[in-house]
Amino acid sequence: MTSPETPSPQVLTGEARLRQRSRRIRNIWITTLGAGLLFGVAVGVAGKRLGAELPPLAFWAMMAALVVMTVVINVWYLQGVDEVEVQDNLWAAYAGLNAHVLIAAGWYSAAARGLAPTPDVLAVALATVIVTLIAYVGLKLRRRLG
């Protein structure tokens, strides 16, 4: 039972709730970047100290931690954002997937015919990320300017 002294819960205006929502999503971004940075530093330090002697179990434990962290952060993010944001993410991922297939298939075919150097997995991955980011930023700009 609520006593007369208990202050009633503050009813936020829509704009205040929007600010709260923006803060929540910004926190998810900060956590994601922070976790990625920590993981990168941990892998770098472990690699430098142990090099090839990193026990296989430790390596697989790190990979498992990375997978769990990625899944948890993505679920948290997708539950926090609205359907327009989810749609933009899906379109950007779709563009990235198409770019990946086209670049990889094109490069491998060209290399098989001696028209290009041996495909570089990291270069293909980097190109995929770049195309995905360009698609995402393009969608966001279109929404902001439109």
Partner: peptide, 18 residues
């Protein structure tokens, strides 16, 4: 405002605009 409606229905302002 768009921001007011966005906060009330728990979406971004860009979503309301879209």
């Amino acid at each position: 405002s768009q921001a007011e409606l966005a906060g009330r229905i728990d979406v971004s302002r860009q979503a309301v605009n879209a």
